Simulated scan of single mutants.
Amino acid sequence: MTDHYTALGLDSAARLADVKRAFRQKASFWHPDKNADPQAPARFRAVQQAYEVLSDTEKRQAYDDNRRRNLLDSPLATATDIWQNYFDPLTQGTEP
């Protein structure tokens, strides 16, 4: 999953004005006519896609909801929970 906030250099609390400003800056920098870097066309497309999603209220809400579902708030706590819920019962009562 592409992180649209990273493509624009923003955090998820960015306002619409911040999204627009970041888009103009990044699009100007990565525009293939102005930037000879071989990665410029791909980065420019990523910036355009990010703006398309983050500037539309409904698309942004759907993206944020999906992003929250996919990101772990606390990887260590999640791993501990998985271990305790699934593996501990298997190992309890069995001796090597």
Score class of each variant (00 low, 15 high):
R60T: 06
E95S: 11
E95P: 00
Q39T: 11
A17N: 11
G93Q: 04
T57Y: 07
F87Y: 10
D64G: 00
R21V: 03
Y51G: 06
W30D: 03
T80N: 11
N85R: 15
R15G: 13
R45V: 09
A77M: 08
H4P: 05
Q49I: 07
S28I: 00
W30S: 04
P89L: 09
G9Q: 02
R24M: 08
P38K: 02
A17L: 12
N70F: 09
Q25G: 04
L16P: 00
A46I: 09
N70I: 06
A46H: 01
F29R: 01
D56S: 07
K34W: 12
A22T: 03
A22G: 06
V53L: 04
V53T: 13
L8W: 01
A22H: 02
T78I: 00
P41F: 02
A62K: 13
A46Y: 05
P89S: 10
A36L: 01
D33L: 15
Y86N: 13
K20M: 03
P32L: 04
D65V: 10
T2I: 12
Q48G: 01
L16E: 10
R24T: 13
D33S: 14
R69L: 15
Q84M: 07
V19G: 01
Y51D: 10
R45W: 04
T91M: 15
R60P: 10
G93C: 06
S28N: 13
S74M: 06
K20P: 00
S74Y: 07
M1V: 14
A14W: 06
F87L: 14
P32C: 03
N35R: 02
W83S: 11
L8F: 01
Y51V: 10
S55Y: 03
N70A: 15
D81V: 02
F29L: 04
S55K: 08
H31K: 15
E58R: 15
D73T: 13
R15P: 06
F44E: 06
F87G: 04
Q92M: 08
A13Y: 07
R43T: 02
A62V: 14
G9F: 01
F23T: 05
G9I: 01
N85F: 03
L10Y: 10
K26C: 05
N66G: 15
Q48M: 10
L10H: 08
A27S: 12
A77E: 14
Q84N: 15
D3K: 03
A79E: 09
N70V: 05
T91C: 11
V19C: 03
A50R: 07
Q48F: 06
Q48I: 07
S28Y: 07
F44I: 08
L10A: 09
L72R: 09
L10N: 09
A13I: 05
A77G: 11
R69G: 14
L72G: 01
L72A: 07
A36G: 09
M1F: 12
D73F: 08
Q84S: 10
P75G: 06
A79G: 07
A77R: 14
Q84W: 04
N85G: 13
R43Q: 11
K26Q: 12
R69C: 08
D18E: 15
T80A: 14
T91Y: 14
K34D: 12
Q49W: 05
A36H: 06
R68L: 08
T2D: 08
Q49L: 14
A22Q: 03
P89E: 09
